[in-house]
């Protein structure tokens, strides 16, 4: 399930907002690849409304389309608190494509070293981009880039260890 709902609730906890503003605040803090679509924003808000987690505190009918101002309810605050306190299940990396590639290369007698080298270069390229973005960004950018950087680094650590073990691994994999 996406974290869009709880994120909206938390942002509304700061202050009641229109959907339009909410989208922009969300994009500013969380949207890393592409901004939220308006459809997504209003679908999420109407779900939260239906579940009693937000309420409409004002409706403006000016020249343009109707604008509703949303506020979080007590149930909404409880909901976001529960969400924050619930651990995320660690992502199951065991079936990753990268792992499969390496084992398949070993199984089929192909040199796995090249696969690792190419992957390392790709990872580092992305890490360089994130590092640049981090340098230019505000604290929010730094946090989000660091999060990604540490994950990419974890992949690379595994790659290095695997590269160091390739001989042992290929013996084992093909002996099966």
């Amino acid at each position: 399930m996406s974290s869009l709902g709880p994120a909206f609730l938390g942002l509304l906890e700061n202050r009641p907002q229109h959907g339009y503003d909410l989208k922009h605040v969300y994009d500013e803090h969380f949207a890393t690849q592409r901004p939220l679509a308006y459809g997504q924003v209003y679908a999420t808000l109407s779900r939260l409304l239906k579940n009693g987690l937000v309420e409409v505190t004002a409706t403006e009918t000016g020249g343009g389309p109707e604008r509703k101002r949303y506020a979080v309810t007590d149930a909404g605050v409880t909901d976001v608190e529960q969400w924050l306190g619930r651990p995320e299940s660690p992502a199951p990396y065991l079936q990753s494509a990268l792992y499969t590639k390496v084992v398949l290369a070993l199984l089929t007698g192909r040199p796995a070293e090249g696969i690792l080298d190419v992957q390392r270069a790709e990872h580092l390229q992305q890490m360089r981009e994130l590092t640049r973005r981090k340098a230019d960004g505000d604290l929010g950018d730094q946090l989000i880039c660091d999060h990604a950087l540490f994950h990419l680094e974890a992949d690379l650590r595994w790659l290095e260890l695997t590269a160091a073990r390739l001989d042992e691994l290929s013996g084992e994999v093909r002996g099966r």
């Binding site: 390392r120 360089r128 994130l130 950087l149």
Partner: peptide, 27 residues
Amino acid sequence: THEPRVAAYADREVIVRDGRTLDIGGG
């Protein structure tokens, strides 16, 4: 460096393995 996050401050990396250089990553 052997730390990827340190290497990410560079423009590109050159890998050294068994005394040989391997130049793949290009920024």
